[in-house]
Nucleic acid binder design. Structure first.
Lengths: 157, 157
DNA sequence: GTAAAAATCACCCAAAAGTATGAAGCCGGT
DNA sequence: ACCGGCTTCATACTTTTGGGTGATTTTTAC
């Protein structure tokens, strides 16, 4: 519908509105201070200033963030018999997403859904959705089973 | 990243259109009020265009690039200093009884209270009582916290 | 540009978990 | 015999969890 179209391109529309408002503002100023036509340099400077800002805004809005990978060495104590490195392949096999993994981690730390929601600045419902998908993918029925399974498959510490 | 920019060229095109509309409006206003010379509008438009580009260039060139940081934890394996035998003293300190310990064990295995009751041939209510006392003694509020605490204190595997 | 995946949030409902309180039987120690 | 701790169970109640469904938005991929 029209609403969807509007919401989808709200950035563009917003930008267009800004341009229009700016234009009329400039025109109004021009009409008001017609006497100051000799102060053309100031006017041009203002335009330059404003549009430079607009360009900056545009650039910041349109660029996608660069991905920077930081490798952090994490000290892990473990039993001599088994080595802890299985996780990545298992995570990929189960098709766990980043958020799901994050939620699993916090579940294993003993947090309730409400606490997880607060920690991640999300709504309770969102956490429920994530945990539901998590249980589906891990083929378990409860958070405690998820913990057990997660530790067994070495996808959490 | 270039790919992403190309995929969003529509924004830039729309921006161009906005500029054109802007100029058109200026022209219209000029015809309406017959105040300014053509040279000024063209000049202003050019300034706006050029400085928008400059703003983009500035933003891309001089700002610290937006960085999406992905932290990859690389495990560094260390020899385990202590062997798993701590449990007894901690159990004594917390004053956990046999049944409570048993229930904790089964909770950590991911069993529900109902399943634990069936496993131990007890009623669901009894398991609830045990788990409640367990949580009290361990100073936790949920089974997941009990698992976390239990593993941390080495009272369960 | 479109399609898929991921992430977000909402509402409803049922099951499980957890709290509070009371009570009964057992067992070891004084 | 009495006390205290352990175990067992019950009832009633509140909170949390989990399932199902649907929607929107953002991101990613092709």
């Amino acid at each position: 519908m029209d609403f969807k179209l509007i919401s989808r391109h709200k950035h563009i529309i917003l930008y267009g509105i800004c341009l229009a408002v700016l234009l009329f503002l400039l025109k109004w100023l021009e009409l008001r201070f017609i006497i100051l036509s000799h102060a053309f340099e100031i006017y041009a400077g203002a335009i330059a200033f404003v549009f430079t800002g607009m360009g900056i805004w545009l650039a910041l809005k349109l660029t996608t963030p660069k991905v920077k990978t930081i490798v952090v060495e994490k000290e892990v104590y473990l039993a001599q018999t088994e080595v802890f490195q299985q996780n990545d392949s298992e995570i990929a096999r189960l098709g766990l997403s980043g958020r799901e993994l994050e939620v699993l981690q916090l579940i294993a730390e003993g947090l309730s859904n409400q606490q997880i929601a607060e920690r991640l600045f999300l709504s309770l419902n969102t956490i429920k959705t994530h945990s539901s998908r998590l249980f589906e993918k891990m083929e378990v029925k409860s958070r405690t089973q998820a913990i057990e399974q997660g530790k067994r498959l070495h996808i959490i510490a």
